Computed example of a mutant assay.
Amino acid sequence: MDRIRAARPPILELFGGAALWGLMMMASAMSALYMRNRFETEHAAELALLYFAGGLFSWPFMLPIGRFFAYRRRIDTRFAAFFVCLTAGTMLMTAFLFSMDYRIFYSRWHAPFGSLVWTYQFIFTGANAVYQFLVLGLRLFLPFGLVCLLVTSYALAKRMR
């Protein structure tokens, strides 16, 4: 029961951290995009919003999970718990948001909602979008996102006892 209580972060850390983590992920994507092609894309604003939302919406789920696994552990274990949770959560949430955007675009050519064909199209459109994000989108988290992840995981590990 103590572990569950300790997993609940303070409200400021939960919501303030979410905004800060979203900003860091957006900055990571924009810096990587700038280094790769000097923003020569018409979708820079949409990408900024996608990476911001991925960070913003993943933090409130992953912080309590990381705190749950870090409870009463050594600092290296706490660091690992936050590192894994933030990595997986941010990538999964950003991939999910990308797949929903992808789905909205292709939905005009899909079968009516709820049909067997629609289900098939929904599953495979989502799977294709996630694959495409993993191949093309994950590299926008590097190198700045990795630095943010290391520093944030260390700070969270130090802060939690």
Score class of each variant (00 low, 15 high):
residue 57 F to E: 03
residue 29 A to P: 01
residue 91 M to W: 13
residue 72 R to N: 14
residue 3 R to V: 14
residue 1 M to G: 04
residue 150 L to K: 03
residue 78 R to N: 01
residue 58 S to E: 08
residue 110 H to E: 14
residue 11 I to V: 15
residue 68 F to L: 14
residue 38 R to M: 04
residue 28 S to N: 12
residue 140 L to G: 00
residue 33 L to R: 11
residue 90 T to H: 13
residue 149 L to A: 10
residue 19 A to F: 15
residue 52 F to E: 12
residue 14 L to K: 15
residue 71 Y to L: 11
residue 62 M to P: 02
residue 77 T to F: 07
residue 120 Y to I: 01
residue 158 K to Q: 05
residue 59 W to N: 05
residue 33 L to H: 11
residue 130 V to S: 09
residue 98 F to D: 07
residue 104 I to Q: 00
residue 148 C to E: 13
residue 102 Y to D: 01
residue 33 L to M: 15
residue 61 F to K: 01
residue 31 S to E: 06
residue 54 G to N: 13
residue 49 L to E: 02
residue 63 L to W: 03
residue 37 N to H: 12
residue 97 L to W: 10
residue 32 A to M: 08
residue 112 P to C: 08
residue 65 I to T: 00
residue 147 V to N: 07
residue 128 N to T: 14
residue 53 A to Q: 10
residue 134 L to G: 13
residue 134 L to V: 10
residue 24 M to W: 07
residue 141 F to C: 02
residue 2 D to H: 12
residue 70 A to K: 05
residue 71 Y to A: 13
residue 110 H to F: 13
residue 114 G to I: 11
residue 85 C to V: 08
residue 123 I to K: 09
residue 120 Y to W: 10
residue 160 M to P: 00
residue 135 V to A: 08
residue 90 T to C: 09
residue 81 A to Y: 06
residue 161 R to Q: 08
residue 99 S to T: 11
residue 77 T to Y: 09
residue 14 L to W: 06
residue 43 H to Q: 10
residue 7 A to W: 15
residue 75 I to Q: 09
residue 104 I to A: 00
residue 127 A to H: 01
residue 52 F to K: 10
residue 124 F to I: 07
residue 124 F to S: 03
residue 36 R to I: 03
residue 134 L to Y: 12
residue 80 A to T: 15
residue 5 R to W: 10
residue 63 L to K: 01
residue 145 G to H: 09
residue 46 E to A: 06
residue 61 F to P: 00
residue 106 Y to A: 02
residue 35 M to N: 03
residue 44 A to C: 00
residue 114 G to A: 13
residue 43 H to Y: 09
residue 94 T to I: 11
residue 37 N to V: 02
residue 6 A to F: 11
residue 31 S to W: 06
residue 44 A to V: 10
residue 14 L to I: 03
residue 161 R to K: 14
residue 67 R to C: 08
residue 9 P to Q: 06
residue 78 R to Y: 01
residue 57 F to P: 01
residue 59 W to S: 04
residue 131 Y to N: 04
residue 73 R to M: 10
residue 88 A to K: 02
residue 14 L to T: 11
residue 24 M to V: 13
residue 63 L to A: 03
residue 93 M to F: 08
residue 2 D to F: 09
residue 109 W to V: 03
residue 49 L to H: 00
residue 48 A to Y: 00
residue 111 A to C: 07
residue 136 L to E: 12
residue 17 G to V: 03
residue 68 F to V: 04
residue 13 E to S: 07
residue 34 Y to C: 04
residue 12 L to G: 03
residue 15 F to H: 00
residue 131 Y to H: 04
residue 3 R to Q: 15
residue 84 V to H: 02
residue 8 R to F: 15
residue 56 L to V: 08
residue 65 I to F: 02
residue 152 T to P: 08
residue 55 G to E: 12
residue 50 L to G: 09
